[in-house]
Design a protein around this nucleic acid. Sequence first.
DNA 1: AATATTTTTGACTTTTTAGTCAAAAAAAGA
DNA 2: TCTTTTTTTGACTAAAAAGTCAAAAATATT
Lengths: 122, 122
Amino acid sequence: MGRNKKFDTVETIGQIQQVFIQKGYNATSLDDLVQATGLLRGSLYSTFGSKEGMFIAALSDSLEKESEESWHLILIAMTELTNQSKRVFEIINQWYHHQSYQTVTEKLGQIVLKESGITEVK
Amino acid sequence: MGRNKKFDTVETIGQIQQVFIQKGYNATSLDDLVQATGLLRGSLYSTFGSKEGMFIAALSDSLEKESEESWHLILIAMTELTNQSKRVFEIINQWYHHQSYQTVTEKLGQIVLKESGITEVK
DNA sequence: AATATTTTTGACTTTTTAGTCAAAAAAAGA
DNA sequence: TCTTTTTTTGACTAAAAAGTCAAAAATATT
């Protein structure tokens, strides 16, 4: 009973993913997320609890789908969150169990270089 | 003429490197750097100009020596600075010219995984 | 229609951030 | 020793950050 959410949570998570992928975690401000989602801070906080919660929602959703953009969020998680957030560590750790060291390191290395904007000679 | 610096700039750069390596760029605050170097903000700013300047000093110094810790700073540069700082982009871009795609992506991938704290099975 | 419950709203608070600056202190050079 | 130049000091500023909350609005349920 009571009001239903005015927005589509799935769509919002998609928008949050795009922001984190483009800017990384620490460099993303709540204003960035407010702007990208079209929601107000209160709505974001009542839905996700915290900035970390927003990232976790974005990451979890992405891992379920296992798309190319998952790798970007995994990289951000590993470089910016895994050592600060127990929950993110758990999520990534569990995901990693189903991967091979070779595949993961190779893919992450490629993404770092690509995202850096450094010209790939090859 | 005039006073000489009370501290050893080379030593200070070493301390700055350690902080950035441990926390990354955005997650490092000036207070962290003040604490690690034992200097005051004014001294850091008069020497390096800005937080970005402090990172550039740390990165440049590290690239000259080409040690294992260089890779950590290169990773941070690529994931957090290359798209925001023209100077860092130039430094990394030039460095990259003397490397091979294979070596770079492989090494970066390994470091991401190691730094993430995720258990390496292998 | 009345009520209970939820979401929305956005201004507000608190904390942290990078960066500044004028005065004091130190010391190099004459 | 005196002057000039530099560094040190640390309180201060301004901007940006994440997060809060009470009132208003909306609506599902009875």
